[in-house]
Computed example of a mutant assay.
Amino acid sequence: MNITLNNGVSMPAIGLGVFQTPPETTTDAVATALEVGYRHIDTAAAYANEREVGEGIRRSGIPRSEIFIETKVWISDYGFAETLHAFDKSAAKLGVETLDLFILHQALPGEFDKTIAAYRALEQLHSDGRVRAIGVSNFMPHHLAELREATSIVPTVNQIEVHPYFSQPEVRAANAESGILTQAWSPIGGITSYRGDGQKSTFTDPVILSVAEAHGKSAAQIMLRWQLQLGHSVIPKSVRPERIKENFDVFDFELTPEQMLIMGTLETGVRGGPAPESITLETFGRDIPEA
């Protein structure tokens, strides 16, 4: 299943995410995913595993032209020249000459001029044919509006935290209004399973489990199907071969309209990731090493 982005580029709806995947297990996870049938891998400079993603792709033996590679620029590399160099670093680690999707990892609210300069560098990379599509991540509606006023190319995606417990309807609506695809990180609510705040996890939610039982599927598969039927792109993470395979096995059933509605009643309003307005170089800045 592919989704056509607003610039006409086709992207597989399901990708393998490698957030917090240790470098020593990343290569095997990527190779396994590609063997299962995935053709979309999502990584980031800040994950420190781009090199291993590239090795997993090469190990798979699948032609580069058949694999959609997405990675992200970290805030420490924002600025026009800095972001152009960030592309060089990521491409070298991945072992590729072009990227399919290159996105800004966060907005930098207190220094939004750097965010704009970074996005203009993405526009230049796109114009030069070094990236096929550009986008953003963790941008709120006002960030998108400010970006649109200062730049020329509408982002193709906005990758945000979306799962049944935190669905961000206002951000998704702003994305849709501008023709921006919502791409869900933590799409099965994995972030809810290690918060340590005493709140329940999506994996043990009785409503989700009841829908899963009705279809003979897992809770994760139900959440991924819910996302796909909402029109989202998803990048579930796993290093376990059986889970990687399970997460890809979501194309042989559909949730009913009633089940879609009930999945939408589970909102808690609790964000798992950092608040976008809290992102500063002082708190979140980190050096992104050369290749």
Rank of each mutant, 00 (worst) to 15 (best):
A184W: 01
S152C: 10
S218L: 09
G8V: 06
G37W: 03
Q259D: 13
S278G: 05
A13D: 07
A45N: 01
L266P: 05
V250T: 10
V53Y: 02
R195Q: 14
Q227I: 00
T32M: 03
S152E: 15
R120D: 02
F19R: 02
A31C: 08
T268A: 05
V171T: 15
P187M: 07
L101H: 08
Y165R: 01
T256F: 12
A212N: 08
E267R: 02
E24C: 05
I134A: 07
S186E: 03
F68I: 11
H142C: 07
V18H: 00
A176G: 07
G15S: 07
V53C: 14
E50R: 09
G190S: 07
W226G: 06
A107V: 02
E149A: 15
A212G: 10
I188N: 00
G269C: 10
R58V: 07
P22R: 07
V171C: 08
Y194F: 15
E97H: 11
Q199V: 14
G61T: 09
Y119G: 06
T4E: 10
P241N: 09
E170A: 15
D197W: 09
E82L: 11
R286H: 14
I222R: 06
V9C: 00
W185F: 14
A92Y: 08
K217E: 10
L108G: 00
A173I: 07
R195M: 14
V18M: 00
L224P: 02
Y194V: 13
L84Q: 11
I116T: 09
E282C: 07
M260P: 06
Y78F: 14
T115A: 12
T27K: 14
E82G: 09
G190I: 00
A45M: 08
L209I: 13
Y47S: 06
T71C: 12
A107Q: 04
I180G: 04
T256A: 11
M223N: 09
Y165P: 04
T202G: 00
T268F: 03
P289M: 11
D287G: 13
V207M: 08
T98K: 05
V211G: 08
A214S: 15
V73A: 15
G17F: 03
A291M: 11
V270E: 02
Q259Y: 07
G272P: 01
V73T: 15
M263K: 06
G110H: 11
T204R: 05
T283C: 11
I62Y: 02
N2Y: 10
K89I: 12
A176F: 02
T25L: 13
T280K: 12
R59A: 13
A184G: 10
H142E: 11
A121M: 10
G273D: 08
L125G: 01
T98P: 00
D252N: 14
S210V: 06
A145N: 12
R172H: 10
W74S: 01
M1E: 15
H215M: 13
Y78L: 07
V270T: 12
K217S: 09
T115N: 10
S60I: 03
S152I: 13
N7E: 04
E290F: 13
E290L: 15
P187N: 08
F251H: 14
I180K: 03
L99T: 01
S218G: 04
E123M: 06
E290P: 03
E24H: 09
K245R: 15
D197S: 12
P187G: 08
A275N: 13
T283P: 02
G17K: 02
Q199K: 15
L5F: 12
T156L: 05
D287P: 05
T192G: 03
A214C: 11
